[in-house]
Design a protein around this nucleic acid. Structure first.
Lengths: 241, 241
DNA sequence: TCTATATTGTCTATAAATTAGACAATAAAT
DNA sequence: ATTTATTGTCTAATTTATAGACAATATAGA
């Protein structure tokens, strides 16, 4: 467990990241499956070094998992119930993975560190899924994108963290025009609409959606995109520099 | 300093509260002046016990300072820059208060605890100023309401915390109708309008303000309030139960 | 007592924004 | 050349917001 207990980090404070991507007309979240017996799913997370800004820490965790930096990133909530502990999760993990107990002394330390109550700061990120090559750590069996509406049961309160993150994204989307971070650099209006529909889980009227988005005055129109389909070719757009 | 270093609390995590009240047509914030030489102003704040929800901790701090419980309370931001330390503040305090250094050993411990980097969770509260009797702790010389637009320079980043809190209140006010928490139980429409005007620092049209607020359908109209003024008596309103 | 004055409550008219409906333009298939 | 599906945009209808107007009323002052 990488010397977690060596006090490199601020004690009892963690960061959990809800990394949203968009593919196949679905909003996806990057989650990892832990490299132990049993189905333990978790959000990418980590801890804060003593001399590190919390925003920097969130960025570091994100970069480790996605390979990209300069990501749109926003803290959205602090999860701080007293009963918010890894204890149950760790005990379940150990029950299924008795080999973990072998070299006792060191693990005892880490067990003590890790089973304490943790306050976790939730961050969400909106990324262009095509630019991301998900990176697993050696704690992970795998890391993958999963439809936000089809997430497995995750450890601790990670499902609740995703729900709260989605709620925050919906609230902040209009004013900050964050959504375009989820698309590739150029996109059609239809793609933008489908993205909004998958975020808000409801349909938008095509004509009015186009007007509303263009009235934001943040997009520039590029050449047409010849799709090969039997209809008028749509324009491509990208965010104004 | 009350055995702060005794590890009753989660390390390096604090809570700062921006308690808003409303009086004399002005939005006010509860701040305390520290009981030392020098003008050190601070927001009411505190720490989180190991077995305490962070929301409970914020409530506890609020109750200690205002005497009231069941307060509307919301976390709005985490202040977590690496350079966010009490160090400069403490050193300035000691420079002006050399007597603090007298019983060395114990103070050294507390100095070490208190000058570490702290991550602070910001909470804001909206309270009926008439129900509050501000309570000072023995660290305070005084505690008082000050116009949010006339706050003195405060320690660390407390001025920035207030700014961010006010921003959050403005963003959340419409949907949650929090504002009425700042008024006494019954109030006239004019009082409600003046409150909104002082929060948003801009005027509202009287006729449309009344319509908008009544259309929210959260107020019930009571009897008229005979003010003694030479005009039609206004109705009193209160929040529907 | 009667009139003047200031403020309140509410109505209507206008303006702005949103939503719904319509249709021409176009790229490829038939 | 005609058909079909989709795009871009226009206008009409509806809803919401803002501005203007006026009657009601509680007291002051003539």
């Amino acid at each position: 467990m990488h010397n977690l207990s060596e006090q490199n980090f601020i004690q009892q404070l963690s960061i959990d990241c809800v990394i949203f991507g968009y593919r196949d007309k679905k909003l996806q979240v990057l989650v990892n499956k832990l490299n132990f017996n049993g189905d333990f799913w978790a959000l990418p997370g980590g801890f804060v070094y003593h001399d590190e800004d919390i925003d920097k820490a969130a960025n570091r965790i994100l970069q480790e998992r996605t390979g990209i930096s300069e990501i749109y990133l926003d803290q959205f909530y602090v999860f701080g119930n007293a009963k918010r502990k890894n204890l149950n999760f760790i005990d379940a993990l150990i029950a299924l993975n008795p080999q973990m107990l072998l070299n006792g002394e060191k693990n005892k330390e880490e067990y003590d560190w890790f089973t304490k109550r943790f306050i976790s700061i939730g961050y969400y990120a909106l990324v262009d899924i095509n630019k991301v090559v998900p990176q697993k750590t050696d704690l992970d069996e795998s890391i993958q994108w999963i439809d936000v509406r089809e997430l497995p049961q995750m450890i601790i309160d990670h499902n609740a963290i995703v729900s709260k993150a989605l709620e925050s994204v919906r609230l902040n989307l209009d004013e900050k025009r964050l959504a375009f971070n989820l698309l590739s650099e150029t996109f059609t209006m239809k793609e933008a609409q489908e993205l909004y529909e998958s975020i808000f889980d409801k349909p938008f009227a095509r004509n009015n959606f186009q007007k509303k988005i263009l009235d934001l005055n943040v997009l520039e129109r590029l050449e047409k995109k010849f799709t090969g389909a039997a209809n008028k070719a749509p324009f491509l757009y990208r965010i104004k520099k």
